[in-house]
Amino acid sequence: MKHILSVLVENEAGVLSRVAGLFSARGFNIDGLTVAPVGDGETSRITLETYGDDNIIEQIIKQLHKLVPVIQVHDLTDRPHVERELMLVKVEAERDMRAEVLRIADIFRSRVVDATSSTFVVEVTGSSDKLDACLNLLEPLGVVEVVRTGKVAMARGAKRMREGLKEAPVKK
């Protein structure tokens, strides 16, 4: 079963390598991975997608907790959460196909972020299924190149990831 893990870590050199090494050493695969610093600059959030039964995921989480730079780990799979992915697609857009590319981009609420006389770069955000569907419609038109970010995910609601998911502060 697919699982999405959200890992809060100290923002220091080598953390991503240590997390990836944990998976590699135990023969687990990472199917998607994103990482970026969060607002305070001292911590980063790693969102990773992996497959396994509940026992395997439980072992992964226990092993992640043992890594010194790891602050918290949450399996978002069975919790209400929001997940998104970003895809950039370079599509051939010769004169007779330009309108069709724009129509497909509009259907998926995406946008053209670069245009030349022969190509468009379309930015699509949303669920993996939405990105796959858009890509399937664009492929017959001549996809030149595709880049995808992997998923980012966050638990829904007013709670935040840090110190036991305390209530998030209310902005005044």
Rank of each mutant, 00 (worst) to 15 (best):
M1P: 15
K2H: 09
H3K: 04
L8H: 10
N11Y: 06
N11S: 08
E12Y: 02
A13V: 14
A13H: 14
A13E: 08
A13W: 15
A13N: 13
G14S: 11
G14K: 10
V19Y: 07
V19F: 09
A20V: 14
A20M: 08
A20D: 05
A20I: 12
G21H: 03
L22S: 05
S24K: 14
A25L: 09
A25R: 15
G27S: 09
G27A: 08
G27F: 03
G27H: 05
G27R: 05
G27P: 03
F28W: 14
N29I: 02
N29F: 05
I30N: 01
I30R: 04
I30Q: 04
D31V: 00
L33F: 09
T34Y: 12
V35M: 08
V35D: 11
A36D: 11
A36H: 11
A36R: 07
V38M: 08
G39F: 00
G39L: 02
G39W: 00
G39I: 00
D40N: 13
D40W: 02
D40A: 01
G41M: 10
T43E: 04
S44F: 07
R45T: 04
R45P: 01
T47H: 06
L48H: 07
E49F: 07
T50D: 10
Y51D: 03
Y51Q: 04
G52P: 07
D53T: 06
E58D: 13
E58H: 04
E58G: 06
Q59F: 05
I61L: 04
K62S: 11
K62V: 03
K62W: 00
